Computed example of a mutant assay.
Amino acid sequence: MIPYTGGCQCRQIRYEIHAQPLTLYLCHCKECQKQSSSAFGMSLTVLRDSVVIVQGKPKAWTRKNDNGREVNNLFCGDCGTRLFHERTYKTDTINVKAGTLDDTSWLQPVGNIWTRSAQSWVIISDQLLNYDGQPEDTQPLWEKWKQQHP
């Protein structure tokens, strides 16, 4: 499946991922609800160096998360599709907004974060790793992903 490919809705920006993902989780924070215009956002964590923009140039908007740390939000300046979240405090990885992949049929999240902000109608499976807020340690999410994707 490598490289994984994806891009924005108007196809002005295209990217490739040249390594296996580290994890996939759903984020139920209010910011992800706003950016996705939905109940949650999907974050596919990958090594930053494995992502290559092959066409176009994303625009960036920076915001502070609940811990006061900066997050760069990369999106298409034409259609507005959110593509990536870069954490300025953790530069070796990047979160790809998983819905922008060309093939999403294989995606299966291993966890949920910020469940305290989840919409009341969302069912949170106890088969997944679940966190009330931002997990201090993301290693369990990475390990569960590895178990399911050896």
Rank of each mutant, 00 (worst) to 15 (best):
R116S: 15
P109Y: 14
D66E: 13
Q108V: 08
I13R: 06
W142E: 13
Q134N: 14
E86T: 01
P21N: 04
P109N: 08
Q147F: 01
N95L: 13
H18F: 02
Q139V: 14
Q119I: 09
Q147W: 02
K144T: 09
G133T: 14
K97Q: 14
G41T: 10
L107M: 12
V96G: 10
I17A: 07
Q108N: 15
T138D: 01
Q20W: 04
H85T: 06
M1R: 11
R14D: 05
G56A: 03
H85Y: 08
V122L: 08
E70N: 00
R14Q: 11
P135E: 07
N130F: 09
D137P: 06
I124E: 04
L22R: 12
S38F: 15
N65E: 00
H28I: 07
W142Y: 15
W114T: 12
P135Q: 05
G56L: 06
T45E: 07
L101C: 07
Q33G: 14
Q9N: 14
L22K: 14
W114C: 09
F84E: 06
R82M: 12
Q33Y: 12
C79Q: 11
Q127C: 02
G133C: 10
G80Y: 04
R48V: 05
K64H: 01
I113G: 05
Q127S: 13
S36E: 11
V96Q: 07
K59A: 01
P150S: 03
S105Q: 10
G56V: 08
W142R: 13
K30I: 11
G41Y: 10
Q20F: 05
V122N: 15
C8V: 07
C8Y: 10
F75C: 01
D103M: 03
L47Y: 10
W121N: 04
W145C: 04
P109F: 09
K146I: 09
Y15P: 04
L26M: 13
V52K: 14
G99W: 10
K34V: 15
I124C: 05
L22H: 12
H85Q: 12
F40K: 09
I53V: 09
H18R: 07
D102F: 06
G111F: 04
Y131P: 11
T100Q: 10
T93I: 15
Y25C: 14
N67K: 13
F84Y: 11
R82V: 14
T81F: 08
E31A: 15
L129P: 08
V52W: 03
T91P: 00
G68Y: 01
S37E: 11
K30G: 08
Y25W: 12
I123L: 08
N67V: 05
S36Q: 13
G80L: 05
C27E: 06
W114Q: 07
N73E: 00
T88E: 00
T100H: 09
G133V: 09
D126F: 04
L74W: 02
V71H: 01
L22G: 11
G77L: 06
W61G: 03
W106K: 05
G56S: 09
T93W: 08
T93E: 15
L74D: 00
N65L: 00
P3N: 04
L26I: 08
K30Y: 09
D66V: 04
V122F: 04
A60T: 06
H85F: 07
P58T: 04
P21Y: 06
T62V: 02
T91S: 05
R63W: 00
L141D: 01
I2V: 03
I13W: 02
T100G: 11
C79Y: 10
R82N: 13
A39N: 15
Q134Y: 10
